Simulated scan of single mutants.
Amino acid sequence: MMSSDLDREVRDLLATAAGPEDLDLSRLHARLEGAADGAGALDVAYRTLDTAVGTLLLAATGRGLLRVAFAAEDHDVVLASIAARVSPRILHAPARLDDVARQLGEYFEGRRREFDLPLDLSLTTGFRRTVLTQLREIEYGRTASYAAVAVAAGSPRAVRAVGSACATNPLPVVVPCHRVVRSDGTIGQYLGGTDTKRALLRLESAA
């Protein structure tokens, strides 16, 4: 399906409406989403999800979950970055992220300890990607120091690099950088804010 076919989908739906009051915008959006997907014109789907730590932006490609972003990161800025780095063919398509939203909902309700989701790690490379792999090994309810993660990642002296990897983690919560703390036991910084990090650690310790 080419772009002209996508335009035809819009014209057909508009033509079937007797007037503006008959135009179902949700139906229009659903048909646009389906047409864009069928035309290969949808590379990244996104939606938002209200949680105990604020509204999260969720974005996914055909390979898996690409991005989880806190409100503090500015969702518009995050979407612009995805458009520049991955593809400008982005559409608000909530249904494609229903499973992600369900699993995150279960996590925040204390009913899920690990995520079973395909991940697209294309927003991170090299040592940072290695660190993210190690973060997924930190069990629910436990923490590890930046130094311990550096050792596990095969570069014991790369403590600062581990901190940088956590600070730029494109998939917070799902890839649990909130479980990484300083060697003295203090929680350290967090891209969603220290209050959010404390809330996540409290949630897991209470389960």
Rank of each mutant, 00 (worst) to 15 (best):
residue 82 I to C: 06
residue 82 I to W: 06
residue 83 A to K: 03
residue 86 V to L: 05
residue 86 V to R: 10
residue 87 S to C: 00
residue 88 P to Y: 03
residue 89 R to H: 12
residue 89 R to A: 09
residue 95 A to I: 12
residue 96 R to V: 13
residue 102 R to E: 12
residue 107 Y to D: 06
residue 110 G to R: 00
residue 112 R to S: 08
residue 113 R to V: 15
residue 114 E to W: 11
residue 120 D to N: 00
residue 120 D to V: 01
residue 121 L to W: 04
residue 124 T to I: 14
residue 125 T to P: 15
residue 125 T to M: 14
residue 126 G to I: 04
residue 127 F to I: 01
residue 128 R to W: 14
residue 130 T to P: 08
residue 131 V to W: 08
residue 134 Q to W: 08
residue 136 R to V: 07
residue 137 E to H: 09
residue 137 E to T: 09
residue 139 E to I: 13
residue 139 E to P: 09
residue 141 G to I: 13
residue 143 T to Q: 04
residue 145 S to D: 15
residue 147 A to E: 15
residue 154 G to H: 07
residue 157 R to Q: 14
residue 163 G to C: 05
residue 163 G to H: 09
residue 164 S to H: 11
residue 164 S to M: 15
residue 166 C to I: 05
residue 167 A to F: 11
residue 168 T to P: 05
residue 169 N to P: 00
residue 169 N to Q: 02
residue 173 V to W: 02
residue 175 V to I: 06
residue 176 P to N: 06
residue 176 P to G: 02
residue 177 C to V: 12
residue 178 H to E: 12
residue 178 H to L: 09
residue 178 H to T: 07
residue 179 R to K: 04
residue 179 R to V: 04
residue 180 V to W: 02
residue 182 R to E: 13
residue 188 G to H: 03
residue 188 G to K: 07
residue 189 Q to L: 15
residue 190 Y to D: 14
residue 190 Y to C: 14
residue 191 L to S: 10
residue 193 G to R: 00
